[in-house]
């Protein structure tokens, strides 16, 4: 699919810019470009629910980043510093490990994709009678795997509590 390859190449270019540029504000804007390209890619991959959620989340993430940078500084003073040998070593070790793991996992998934698709076949065939939802993704997250969604809400709530606890300026008055 040529349109997907173009989107991915743009994402790689914007990702390199986001990682290597000196101005942190420009870095965050490049990250936003990657996020919105991911949303377009979800539309190309026939996943409209993911595209909607990705756009909302991306806007919120960029707003958080910009708020932090506005309160602090927007110059990356560490750019151009020589690399440490230990960092390069760690990156190579983790990179080779991640590549090998992803290769084995993705290959397994592609070979056995029909077995994995049987679950989806069941959801598509019997989803309407079992849940009454027309949208399969909504049927999965809100009915078949609703406990998963409860866990997600718990994680999000915990993150909000953590952010409030960290950002609280004054301690309790005695």
């Amino acid at each position: 699919m040529p349109e997907l390859i173009i989107l991915l190449l743009f994402m790689v270019a914007a990702g390199i810019v986001a990682v290597e540029i000196k101005d942190l504000l420009a870095s965050v804007i490049a990250l936003g470009a990657v996020g919105f390209t991911v949303a377009i890619g979800f539309i190309v991959l026939q996943a409209p629910d993911l595209a909607i959620v990705q756009i909302v989340i991306e806007i919120l993430a960029v707003v958080f980043f910009v708020a932090v940078i506005l309160k602090t500084t927007h110059v990356d003073s560490t750019i151009g510093r020589p690399y440490k040998g230990a960092d390069i070593f760690t990156f190579i070790i983790f990179g080779v490990f991640a590549l090998a793991f992803l290769y084995v996992g993705v290959r397994f998934l592609l070979i056995n994709s029909s077995a994995g698709f049987e679950i989806a076949q069941h959801y598509i065939k019997h989803g309407l009678t079992e849940t009454g939802a027309v949208n399969r993704v909504a049927a999965v997250i809100l009915d078949y795997r609703a406990l998963d969604t409860l866990g997600e809400a718990t994680v999000l709530f915990t993150a909000v509590i953590g952010v409030l606890a960290v950002l609280r300026l004054e301690g309790r008055k005695k």
Binding site: I57, F64, R136, V137, I141, T149
Partner: peptide
Amino acid sequence: PVPQALVLTSIVIGLGVTAF
């Protein structure tokens, strides 16, 4: 639809991690 539901959860949790 199964990976899509998984990614839907993962995107929202990613925002929580980033904010923290």
